[in-house]
């Protein structure tokens, strides 16, 4: 039974991990938690729903539409909201990001209402029995796509020029500027990639449960940053690991206790990590100033 929960947890965890990656990348370059990230992801989910369900278009096309809108949104938010105040105290950026979160989540409610909408992706679900474990085609798709994305992202960060620029900016903005890195463009690229990953996460979440609703952004948003803290803020492998762990812990807690406790578990983990190992599992030691 636990094995089954681990499979379910991994699926959920992969979704969280994609979101956590965006958080962590943005945290890495700008050093603050972008509270609008979960909502950017949710907008991606809604756009996909709109294109697939309302416009009745091909769902692959719908997914791309969702990703593109989120990406543009993320880049625009950075440009309008965070770039002008990059040198201001971090608290200001945090408040602006919460402002964007309010605006995005309520705009979505205004446009598409507060009711849950059913997501017409992966309607044709097949289930497979492997020993005592039941796994369905949704889960397989999610796990495969998420793994491919994570591998690609790792390659991007470690092997490409852009990845190098992102790592340099994360280490020291002014020095990387002196070394010829275009800091503004690198930060925009980070937001673009982060938001695209977020959109993927939002779409998968909606597809996995078959519904999308307006508080989804806040819900996965909090899970995502719990994953970031658990894995270690600013660490890419940490975000993947943190997301997976949160997913597994949640799934197990969901069967041992009840559904509400399941949603609280992420926070309990978050608080425990912050109390006992604030740098997270793979994070650098950033405990004290």
């Amino acid at each position: 039974m636990y094995l089954q929960q681990i499979v379910n947890g991994l699926t959920l965890g992969a979704i969280y991990a994609l979101l956590a990656l965006g958080y962590s990348m943005i945290f890495g370059v700008l050093y603050f938690i972008n509270f609008a990230h979960g909502d950017i992801a949710m907008v991606g989910g809604y756009v996909t729903w709109f294109v697939a369900a309302s416009l009745k278009m091909n769902f692959v096309l719908a997914i791309f539409a969702g990703i593109i809108v989120s990406t543009l949104l993320g880049v625009a938010i950075e440009f309008i909201g965070y770039r002008p105040i990059r040198r201001a105290p971090k608290l200001s950026a945090v408040i602006v990001s919460m402002g964007f979160s309010f605006v995005l989540s309520t705009s979505v409610q205004l446009i598409w209402g507060t009711r849950s909408l059913s997501m017409p992706i992966f309607t044709n679900v097949k289930t497979f029995n492997i020993g005592s474990i039941i796994i369905n085609s949704k889960q397989i798709w999610i796990l495969v796509i998420a793994t491919v994305i994570m591998v690609l992202l790792t390659l991007l960060i470690n092997k490409t020029k852009l990845g190098m620029a992102m790592r340099a900016v994360a280490l020291d903005q002014s020095t990387s500027a002196l070394m010829g890195v275009n800091v503004n463009r690198t930060i925009s690229a980070t937001f673009a990639i982060g938001s695209a990953l977020g959109a993927m996460s939002g779409i998968m979440m909606a597809a996995y449960y078959g519904v999308i609703y307006s508080t989804l952004g806040g819900l996965i948003g909090t899970k995502g940053f719990a994953a970031v803290v658990l894995g270690g803020a600013g660490s890419i492998p940490g975000a993947m690991l943190g997301g997976m762990l949160i997913g597994i812990i949640e799934s197990i807690a969901g069967t041992v206790f009840n559904a509400q406790v399941k949603d609280a578990v992420a926070f309990v983990v978050l608080i425990l990590v912050l109390l006992f190992k604030p740098s997270g599992i793979l994070g650098k030691d950033v405990m004290k100033d």
Binding site: I80, P84, A88, G99, F100, F102, V103, S107
Partner: peptide, 12 residues
């Protein structure tokens, strides 16, 4: 939305 906009515009 109003609060959100006030937060963004105010801080900026």
């Amino acid at each position: 939305i109003f609060v959100g906009v006030v937060m963004i515009v105010g801080i900026l």
